[in-house]
Write a protein that binds this DNA or RNA. Sequence first.
DNA 1: TAAAAAAATACAATCGATTGTACAAATATT
DNA 2: AATATTTGTACAATCGATTGTATTTTTTTA
Lengths: 343, 343
Amino acid sequence: MTKNITIHDLAKELGLDSSTISRALSDSPRVGSKTKERVLEKAKELGYQRNLMASNLRTNKTMTIGVVVPHISRHFFSEAIDGIEQVVASKKYRVVISQSRDDFENEKEIVNGLFMNRVDGLLISPSMETPNGDHLDLFYKNKIPVVLFDRYFDNGGLSKVIFEDNKGAYDLTQHLIDNGCKRIYHLAGDLNSQIYMQRFAGYKEALKENNLDFEETFVKESNLYKEDAEEFIVDLLKDKNNFPDAIICANDVSALAIMKYLDENTDIKVPEDIAIAGFSNEPASAIIKPGLTTIDQHPFRIGKTAADMLLKFIDDKENAFNASNTIVVKSELIIRGSSKKNK
Amino acid sequence: MTKNITIHDLAKELGLDSSTISRALSDSPRVGSKTKERVLEKAKELGYQRNLMASNLRTNKTMTIGVVVPHISRHFFSEAIDGIEQVVASKKYRVVISQSRDDFENEKEIVNGLFMNRVDGLLISPSMETPNGDHLDLFYKNKIPVVLFDRYFDNGGLSKVIFEDNKGAYDLTQHLIDNGCKRIYHLAGDLNSQIYMQRFAGYKEALKENNLDFEETFVKESNLYKEDAEEFIVDLLKDKNNFPDAIICANDVSALAIMKYLDENTDIKVPEDIAIAGFSNEPASAIIKPGLTTIDQHPFRIGKTAADMLLKFIDDKENAFNASNTIVVKSELIIRGSSKKNK
DNA sequence: TAAAAAAATACAATCGATTGTACAAATATT
DNA sequence: AATATTTGTACAATCGATTGTATTTTTTTA
């Protein structure tokens, strides 16, 4: 193994002290310009590459941001990570990305690991199982900024960038009502999670304000996978007398699964017989026919915003710990064919 | 700021030497069990967290893998990253992820940065612009293993995990021919890129072996975005006499765009009037109607395989630099409605 | 030209953990 | 009980870069 070149090697070669090399390489005014040139040239000649492990240790900075998400490959998160990476890279930071797989134990381990690596800040979208922010105390106590995004918990003091889940679901519901729907069901996510809770609440509020029926049986809590959606619709089909005239799903995956199921297994037509709406605006939602009415969550923007906030906190730690800052990213109603009843 | 607790703090508190603390924490046989207990207890009490910056510097290991992809949020790459992360995390490694945005200058900077961070290995899917592996010499010379995945270049010595692009395109073409297609066009990607080159070659081979016509005009090189696909189909529609009876697109995005365009703007039916096939098996391809015939690339498996190979090289550097290992991940033909002509 | 000021460079400690060697204490052997 | 052996700890150097202080060299000023 070609031994790595260090500033000491350069120093020896040039008959200078390593401190001078260090200063020359960081363009310090304390080093003469001829010397700087010599150093730079020699560094290039020997293929010197600064060792950031050493540098980080000394400066107590890693220029690294930890990012924790439930699943990297989910459309929402990969878009958010794209946004994060873009912002962070432009400020010469790097991202270390881990996935909790919605497992709290996993998440705790990851968070500890990131702390041991002394990341300069943490962006986290907690797992479904995460009850509170106690496992982030480590960061809090050591004044390393943390920003939650998308998912969160009511845990005093943590800053976050969240989505208008309530408003999104409200708008969706109101839109369906405006289109003549009266018996609107809701396939919900895990109601222990703030985001699904909010979606459920927005849906309910809209029903209430329009004096529409709401019964507990209208709502089914689930994991929102394809299979959950199929199970849900199969159940509903058993009692055709009480069939809904609209379903709002808490994500697109389940909404698409229901549309697909109805199309392939029944002669129930969307939107004529039943309107369907989803949440998240996945790429497939624009491609299915009819298109799926949904809420765009602007995941890229959420990621960007969270990263911006975190970097601001890193620069200005005062503010990072004085108040819990919350930014709410606006929802956007995307109306497509699946909701166009209008009778 | 609560000063971080170090092994020296623990040592002072317990009246021991820091070396003993270090050994106790790593469960060395050289430390007595009672002492170990005392250390562990005190560590927990004071909330000690090992500083990996220091540890890394000393041991010259970071337990970190650098990952470079063109775009994090593309389905293929986010799935591949998922696979990588899964493998790597199980061996207590972490991933630092960067995106080149298909910009070579960017990629060079990222690669240098990862080297300065002394990652223990590098997984890279090079940008479209990357001409060769010269910018990876740094790793090669310093015996840090590198594995290319998906995209690659013919540059002696680098190990890689690639996809059966040629075979995939061949199978797709053969399948269309078996279904009665005779005039098969190809919307290609950038032909400077090995993967698109291979897909093109596979398509051409299949035509040849079946003694079917091939003309240069059958092929259009493009960036494979939605807009490119629309432009392509609009052009074809101008000359209805020479309209193809099948199009193989080098990715799903463009194939879906063509299907969507035909459906919304013409009365040309898929697959009755024209068969369409894509490449990559995006989620939307299973949802559109008719479903899009395509090739599954198993991106998750590609990621996993590449990560496995890299970790093996890290453990056994001998082999990492003796030969260039190449694993080819098998393609899978996914037949859906868009190709079912059979007349 | 000598003294003062400014510029360039060297010295040495430090960041926190690891690890080879040396030493001391405890236990075993004869 | 005296010596040999094992076990447990301490000492000290090291990883590579950074940075405050000290020193030398050069330039300026009187």
